[in-house]
């Protein structure tokens, strides 16, 4: 039978070897815990899958909206560049003078191209396009003025385009210069609104993700109350008990982000046909852009972060309430 002091020596030695192993043990414990928490998720896989699905949809919505806004923005930019100013000339201006003005206007730094359409050309085109040929012939004289189509330089700011229109309108031989830009301005405003909405929706749904994860973890803790009590009796620290739950939170967030990517991918496939038609009508100059690598990374980070936060705000409060009796 060992003496009391012999026992103590043995315990000290064990404690020393435990300290030497502790660094390796710590890493191994974390790795084991990471896998174990995944195992826990899979054991109650229906509940986990539902949580992950809801998180995925909550993350996919603002991300999808973000992608739509981003693409619409580029589309609107393209439309801005294809804008044309119609400069209506005085009715009595000779076609030669109209052509001369068109050539002169090309010297303006803000102008890219000009094209003179004489009254006769305009009438011919209109007859062809409208089918009202006979009616117009009956009218006798040509009601249309000569027009110069002015294309502003690409990347000219909308305000500068506005100034250009005003300047053209004030010229002597010009009756009116107009730019039907109102719809474009409206579109820009709508896009701005959508972009803000995607942030607000993103924030609200982020809060939803935090609560979903928190609630799932709370139920998980409730189900493991007895196990947690036993662990506390065996000397488990709060950090030790918390760890698998925090990892569960990370898993929920990560898997939720993957589901969101999947949802976005499916949406893109589903809309792919109509997108392709739209794109081809722009000579392929406008390829639809997805989230992009950085977007995917952000989505995953957001999932992880929200899962973590949802867990942290729940776990401490719930675990403190469980004490062995």
């Amino acid at each position: 039978m060992p003496t009391a002091s012999g026992q103590r020596d043995m315990r000290t030695r064990l404690a020393d070897s435990a300290a030497a192993d502790s660094a390796k043990g710590w890493a191994a414990a974390h790795a084991r815990c990471l896998l174990e928490s995944l195992g826990r998720l899979s054991r109650r896989w229906i509940a986990s899958a539902l949580t992950i699905l809801v998180i995925g949809i909550a993350l996919a919505l603002p991300s999808g909206l973000f992608v739509v806004v981003k693409n619409m923005d580029r589309l609107a930019g393209q439309w801005h560049q294809s804008v044309q100013i119609s400069v209506y000339l005085d009715n009595d201006l000779a076609p030669e003078a109209g052509q001369q003005l068109a050539d002169d206007l090309r010297d303006d730094k803000r102008v890219d191209k000009t094209q003179f359409v004489s009254a006769e050309q305009g009438l011919d085109e209109f007859k062809k396009a409208s089918g009202f040929g006979a009616a117009l012939d009956a009218l006798g004289n040509n009601p249309l003025p000569g027009v110069i189509q002015v294309t502003p330089r690409a990347n000219l700011a909308p305000a500068a385009v506005g100034e250009l229109v005003a300047a053209l309108g004030q010229r002597d031989t010009v009756a009116k210069a107009s730019l039907d830009q109102a719809w474009l301005r409206r579109l820009t405003a709508i896009l701005d609104l959508l972009s803000r909405a995607s942030w607000v929706i993103g924030l609200l749904l982020s809060a939803a993700v935090v609560f979903i994860v928190g609630n799932t973890i709370r139920l998980d803790i409730e189900n493991r109350r007895q196990e947690i009590e036993v662990m506390k009796l065996l000397g488990a620290s709060d950090a030790f008990i918390r760890r698998p739950f925090l990892y569960s939170g990370l898993w929920y967030g990560l898997l939720g982000a993957f589901v969101a990517l999947l949802v976005l991918g499916v949406c893109r496939l589903a809309l792919g046909g109509s997108l392709a038609t739209l794109v081809s009508s722009y000579d392929g100059a406008l390829a639809i852009q997805g989230l992009g690598a950085s977007g995917v990374l952000w989505l995953i980070l957001a999932g992880l972060g929200l899962g973590w936060v949802g867990c942290v705000i729940t776990v401490n409060r719930e675990l403190a309430a469980i004490e062995p009796r």
């Binding site: 390796k24 710590w26 065996l234």
Partner: peptide, 13 residues
Amino acid sequence: ALPLVIRGQAHRD
């Protein structure tokens, strides 16, 4: 093994 896992002992031990 639980008390040993709680103490963070190495797997071998």
